[in-house]
């Protein structure tokens, strides 16, 4: 069991040894720096409209050009990426925590609970992911909190299923049986014995979840259901760009490219972590 408990130092060393994880960390690190410090270096307010500088093509003064109301697109992209990332991280983490809890409980308790919970998980997983998110937005209303909630809800079944399957595998291990024999409470066993031992695959799933979560955020905002003005998010900036895409394609193209780089970084990192944390997971699907 020691093999999958976390040691930050060892993890850092392993990451440096793994090509894809290194690349992922480098990309994410660069994007994070750009997101955090970039806006303060740019002389533009992401929401500052300038009607004298409408839809300018990319140049040294505006590397990503300007949008229809003269806002600097790079400033909006960096600031928007912050919001997109924040929404995604919170959403996927919430979904991950809830899903793990549900799946672990379901797998550990078994009996009638397991088939019932899994039936619901199956149901949610049978809906196209984006369709589910779209409906949740209509029910919850538009805005940042509903997006977070929708992303969380979409991810609950994924985590629940994974947590349940790994719990089933761990459940029969001697140390869990031993804890049982010692009369420890179920809750204690789950938190102390099982959780640390299923943490690695959950962690990998989380990274991969961020990668697709940010696509969901962007997609919802792209349809106008997500993050609302004046706040930008990557999807919002792309939706703006879609409107005048024929004549001024750089807004949607460059914003999408930024989004792609972020997702690429997350995927590379996820790949690397998967190799490092649990080589056996490598052959499983990324879903």
């Amino acid at each position: 069991m020691a093999e999958s408990t976390f040691s930050p130092k060892r993890l850092a060393r392993e990451i440096l040894r793994n090509r894809s994880a290194t690349a992922g960390v480098a990309i994410i690190g660069f994007m994070a720096l750009a997101m955090i410090f970039g806006p303060s270096f740019l002389p533009y307010d992401p929401n500052g409209m300038d009607f004298m500088a409408i839809l300018e093509v990319p140049s040294w003064t505006h590397p990503f050009g300007t949008d229809a109301v003269g806002r600097d697109v790079l400033a909006r992209v960096l600031y928007g990426a912050r919001i997109s990332m924040l929404v995604t991280i919170i959403g996927v983490s919430l979904g991950g925590a809830a899903g793990t809890l549900i799946g672990m409980t379901s797998g550990f308790v078994g009996r009638w609970v397991d088939p019932v919970v899994m039936r619901f998980v199956d149901l949610l997983m049978a809906f196209p992911i984006f369709v589910l998110a779209l409906f949740l937005m209509l029910v919850l209303g538009f805005g940042i909190q509903p997006v977070i909630f929708a992303i969380a809800l979409v991810y609950v079944p994924n985590f629940a299923r994974l947590a349940r399957n790994t719990t089933l595998a761990v459940k029969e291990e001697p140390y869990v049986q031993a804890a049982r024999l010692m009369g420890q409470s179920n809750l204690r066993i789950m938190l102390r014995e099982i959780l640390p031992n299923i943490a690695a695959p959950m962690f990998v799933q989380l990274t991969v979840g961020f990668a697709f979560g940010i696509v969901i955020e962007a997609g919802l905002s792209f349809l106008g259901l997500g993050v609302q003005p004046p706040d930008p998010s990557l999807g919002v900036v792309m939706a703006d760009g879609k409107d005048y895409f024929l004549a001024h394609p750089w807004v949607i193209t460059l914003t999408g490219l930024t989004l792609m780089v972020i997702i690429l970084g997350l995927n590379l990192l996820g790949d690397g972590l998967r190799d490092i944390l649990d080589p056996r997971l490598r052959k499983r699907s990324m879903a």
């Binding site: 696509v215 997609g219 780089v261 995927n267 590379l268």
Partner: peptide, 14 residues
């Protein structure tokens, strides 16, 4: 991995 990282709606416009 590049393919996986491309949002389909964006790819459509490209």
């Amino acid at each position: 991995i590049l393919g996986i990282s491309m949002p389909d709606f964006w790819l459509s416009y490209v």
